[in-house]
Amino acid sequence: MYGMGILKGLSVTLKHLVRTYVDDIKYAGRKYLRQENFEERQGLKADGAFTVMYPEEKLAVPERFRFVPFLVVEDADHPERAGEDWCTSCGICAKVCPPQCIWIVRGEDPVTKRPVPQPEAFFIDIDICMNCGYCAEFCPFDAIKMDHDYEMASYDRTKHHIHDKAKLSKPFSYWTSIAPTTAFEEARDRGGWEHPDIIKEFKKSGRTPTPVSEASSQANLNSAAFVAKQKADAEAAAVVAAAPKDASAPPAPVAEATPAVSASGEVSPEERKRRRDEALARKKAKADS
């Protein structure tokens, strides 16, 4: 019969309409109030309207989300290198950047004119940046990372859209807070919370690190402190998770992290120290001869 197809289709529309109200009733007026309601509305079981009431509520972005990059600097409470750059101005990010939006002025020793591993200036033109994430992916020092803050509208693009070093720099703790899992995996891969080369460069510049930073950076990775922190994070996440079964399951990386440090072929701290001592001895012998 003519028209049956239309009616059949309209029944789908009607179902959608009804479902939206049923959905509203289900939450008993608390639809927008509770965190777990949000998760359900935005999950696979969602039935009614899927609108997010921006800016009263925002979809938090996942860890790997990438937006205009930032530079990692040491935390303000770091024992000896507070606020110093992780960047060594090696220029790989500027070279690998597809739209070429990164400008780096390599640091230079004022007397000898030799390059020093600190950028003198660092610029990113965020109008050109295409948020591809290559700089973060290929940085050998994990010193540039993709940010999560996407609310960057401004009134004047000529004044505010070239980010300089001051504007780009964010502490390491910020990175661990926006991407805890990724930050941990990276630390595991480089064998310590701080990059061994940065410690090396630091020593080369004539300063000696307190044993605290060197040792603790190694130990932290295996220490109970990190696991505890991860657990706390997991519990915090579990609180917001709707299903109670999730509360018992901490994020998976923790479980596999501790053995992976040694299993991944990383050199142990003692081994690294021994090799460095050997190298230093050779160097000294060469200088003496």
Binding site: E39, G43, K58, A60, V61, P62, E63, R64, D149, S177
Partner: peptide, 18 residues
């Protein structure tokens, strides 16, 4: 990723974890 998990960063951010 192990989990599709978001991290709260901005004001009014709502989290998800699957």
């Amino acid at each position: 990723p192990e989990r599709i998990r978001s991290v709260s960063n901005l004001v009014n951010d709502k989290l998800r974890d699957f």
